[in-house]
Design a protein around this nucleic acid. Structure first.
Lengths: 199, 199
DNA sequence: GGATAAACGGAACGTTGCTCCGTTTAAATA
DNA sequence: TATTTAAACGGAGCAACGTTCCGTTTATCC
């Protein structure tokens, strides 16, 4: 049971009081449930209520709305990044990339509103893209470089741009079904394969 | 000077009172300006203020927020649809499709928040996708069918899906620059060309 | 068992989309 | 032109939201 604070500074470990730790845990759990049911735009009050905690407590632990969202998805994104690193070792690099992309589409599809929030530019969600980028860009980079080294895709595509593009296309999954998103992402990836020789 | 009501029923032409006509015009003009400055999420009160009109008047003429947005962009979308139809006559069908896509990216890039609002699924913007779809899907269909008939792209892509995909990718233009969006749309279109023979 | 600072909770503020209704006014009628 | 009437007006008001503020409670340390 480490202190485990909310920020990503592993440095000066401020020891949380027991009640604070409880509140943080309850909030993350409640937020996870509420996000799953009502999307990431769910009212903060609802999350506070479900956690059995006052609104003030929410904002002390998660100063911005996006901090709460980031907190909820941090572990899941981490899991995702690991899954990607595993795939990056594949000897069928393009298929690995495609598979990972499919997983990412599904991942965002089950987190209602997350895809839209990620790249909305809304300052309320400021903290989100940073964390996602930090964790997932290296994964995409690896997958992409492997596929490029194998001559399966072109080399002139920026990993972060591709990550954003997949995320954007996944945002349509919420209103149009995940199949559409998957097809469009598939199309995008096929674009990576078009004209490889001169890429 | 026809009655020119707000709805799309060309039928029973309800004659607007002169002041009502003035209000509608002023609102459309004000909304256009405000949207350009602050994006489509700008407060209704601000638009009302600039138009020199009460809030009640806004909601009588445009019951939902999206009706106002649709009203503002209606003409521009129409122009867009015409430009597409012109391109559809080209004898370089894929290039026509690519060119039109580029125009669409730029179009959405200059309308801050429109891309995000279009396919957000937010009920507040309900009326938007319908109008965009009605006007633009036939265009994409033509462009796509022409290119497919020329053997330049595959045949198994749904025009509306493609339209949405381009729109979604354009949404990233607001935070990441239009170049990124254009590159990603280019990638998507290259996907259309990948493996044509078996499409 | 104090002392103290950390954590708490919720009232309150400002902003938003939208409704409601008493007031004004364009325009048809006499 | 005077009267009538329904269309259009404007903005107070409502509910919901994100966020701040601060008096109260409580975990922890000595």
């Amino acid at each position: 049971m480490k202190p485990e604070d909310t920020g990503e500074d592993g440095g000066k470990a401020r020891v949380l009081r027991a009640d604070a730790q409880r509140s943080t845990d309850a909030l993350l759990q409640a937020a996870k449930e509420v996000f799953a049911e009502s999307g990431v735009d769910a009212p903060v009050r609802e999350i506070a209520k479900r956690a059995g905690v006052g609104i003030g407590t929410v904002y002390r632990n998660f100063p911005k709305r996006s901090d709460l969202i980031a907190g909820v998805f941090r572990r899941e994104v981490d899991v995702f990044a690991e899954a990607g690193q595993a795939l990056a070792g594949s000897d069928a690099p393009f298929e690995a990339l495609a598979r990972w992309s499919g997983l990412y589409v599904d991942f965002l599809a089950t987190k209602r509103g997350l895809g839209a929030a990620l790249y909305s530019g809304d300052p309320a969600y400021e903290a989100l893209p940073g964390y996602f980028r930090a964790r997932l860009e290296p994964v995409v980079r690896d997958l992409l470089e492997n596929a490029a080294a194998a001559g399966e895709v072109r080399k002139d595509v920026d990993p972060y741009e591709l990550l954003r593009a997949i995320g954007s296309l996944s945002a349509t999954a919420e209103t149009g079904g995940a199949e559409t998103a998957r097809r469009m992402v598939g199309l995008l990836l096929d674009g990576l394969r078009y004209g490889v020789e001169r890429g």
